[in-house]
């Protein structure tokens, strides 16, 4: 290294002697927002909610260490200074803010929450299965070196650009029994045709599912298409030489090779499922009755409407646990794979 200017060289030396914390200072300064977000929001706020889910907070969060006397026993003892008797109160203090798992007991005893969890289960299972199957099938169709591939892809992906509110409202309109599909089919002469998923408490989840899939499958298709395109062309040549049918090549060879893409898709879809909120608000607001409630709606109502904060915290902690159950195996899989490579 040729450093002509001696000033630069000495500056470099000074730089090296700076204490550890001050080294790379600009980079650390630039990271302050990230560090603050991680510490205050992602770690701090999450822990806060988990801790307060064990309290009896209602309208406002209770002070954590609010205490009250549990018992007080006067104990007589001799005062050293003048020989007279005095009493000292020995008090047992109990922290009254914490109510143990009461909130969780109440949560799992609430019908609305049970319905929510059931709905999330059905919605999640169907959404996951159909997203993967439809997404992969469409990607495979688009992969067949067709004309107008871009046009097809553009049409299938555009709903993903729309908000859940817009999605929910459009499908609310199309599924409206008095004006939508049901009426059109009835006008064709099928007088007894019934298709009113949003007004039927047995099928309302599937009504939401239709809208959710319409919005989200385009993304899965794009991920899958990228995955299929990433597979070595020689695999195809080999399978053609062997005379394996195309569909069989996809099912038996391509899908197993695309395991990482499937895992990524599962994680992305799964994280979206647990968060489902806007879509339900726009389509049904949880109705008819409580038949299309979802955990996120329960949390929001308890925290911001019913003034029952701790109940909302408990419910959201359960949501967090659900995500952790999906996420931890994935992280394990990821890191395990990296170690092997």
């Amino acid at each position: 290294m040729t450093v002509a200017d001696t000033g630069t060289a000495s500056a470099t030396r000074v730089h090296r002697r700076r204490p550890r914390i001050l080294r790379n200072l600009a980079s650390k300064t630039a990271s302050i927002p990230m560090v603050a977000t991680v510490l205050v929001i992602f770690i701090g706020c999450t822990l806060w909610t988990v801790i307060y889910s064990f309290t009896k907070s209602r309208l406002l969060p209770v002070p954590l260490f609010e205490t009250m006397p549990l018992f007080s026993i006067p104990v007589p003892h001799l005062l050293a200074s003048d020989g007279s008797w005095d009493f000292t109160l020995i008090t047992g203090l109990k922290s009254s803010s914490f109510v143990g798992t009461d909130q969780y007991d109440r949560l799992w005893g609430t019908r609305r929450w049970i319905v929510s969890i059931g709905n999330l289960g059905i919605y999640g299972l169907c959404s996951m299965t159909f997203s993967l199957v439809i997404g992969f099938t469409l990607a495979a169709l688009l992969d067949r070196k067709i004309r107008f591939e871009n046009a097809f892809r553009t049409i299938i992906l555009y709903p993903f650009a729309l908000s859940f509110i817009v999605t929910g409202l459009v499908w609310q309109w199309i599924l409206n029994p008095n004006f939508g599909i049901q009426k059109v089919v009835r006008d064709l002469g099928f007088e007894n045709f019934v298709f009113d998923p949003l007004y039927n408490d047995k099928y309302v989840v599937y009504g939401i599912l239709i809208a959710g899939l319409w919005q989200g499958t385009g993304l899965v298709m794009c991920l899958m298409l990228a995955g299929i395109r990433g597979i070595d062309e020689d695999i195809w040549k080999a399978s053609r030489v062997e005379g394996i049918p195309v569909w069989k090549t996809y099912v038996m060879i391509v899908i197993p090779m695309m395991r990482p893409v499937f895992v990524t898709s599962v994680v992305i879809i799964g994280a979206g499922i647990v968060k489902v909120y806007d879509l339900v608000v726009a389509q049904t607001s949880g109705g008819p009755g409580i038949s299309s409630q979802m955990p996120a709606l329960y949390v929001m109502d308890k925290m911001f409407k019913d003034q029952n904060l701790a109940q909302g915290f408990a419910a959201s902690t359960v949501m967090l646990m659900t995500v952790a159950i999906i996420l931890i195996p994935w992280a394990y899989f990821e890191f395990g794979r990296k170690k092997n490579v």
Partner: peptide, 11 residues
């Protein structure tokens, strides 16, 4: 991946 609902109130 943390559900937003967990952090909404503390924020």
């Amino acid at each position: 991946f943390i559900p937003y609902q967990v952090m909404l109130y503390p924020i």
